[in-house]
């Protein structure tokens, strides 16, 4: 099971702040995104638009990263601090 978080504008667009997802061993982040696009349809348009970074355990990673049980994944829209 991994925890998936959505921040800022994504919270409203997806309609959820956090979901828990069962994964199989060896699942990549890319595969998780594809699964989430089915479970959470607004995510398809969001990812197509681009500009979203994804972190695993608070570090931004690429889609080929392998995720593990217990990981915390977050969808991060463009930053606007400062």
């Amino acid at each position: 099971m991994v925890k998936v978080k959505f921040f800022a504008v994504l919270k409203g667009l997806v309609g959820k702040e956090e979901v828990a997802v069962e994964i199989e061993g060896g699942t990549t982040l890319g595969q998780l995104i594809e699964k989430l696009k089915i479970d959470l349809p607004p995510l398809k348009d969001i990812m197509q638009k681009g500009g979203i970074l994804i972190s695993v355990n608070q570090e931004v990673v690429e889609k080929d990263a392998v995720i593990q049980d217990g990981d915390e994944i977050a969808f991060l829209p463009p930053f606007a601090g400062g």
Partner: peptide, 14 residues
């Protein structure tokens, strides 16, 4: 520091 803060820190403004 301020440029880097804006670039890599997960903070969002509404």
């Amino acid at each position: 520091c301020i440029d880097e803060l804006k670039r890599i820190t997960p903070i969002w403004k509404k």
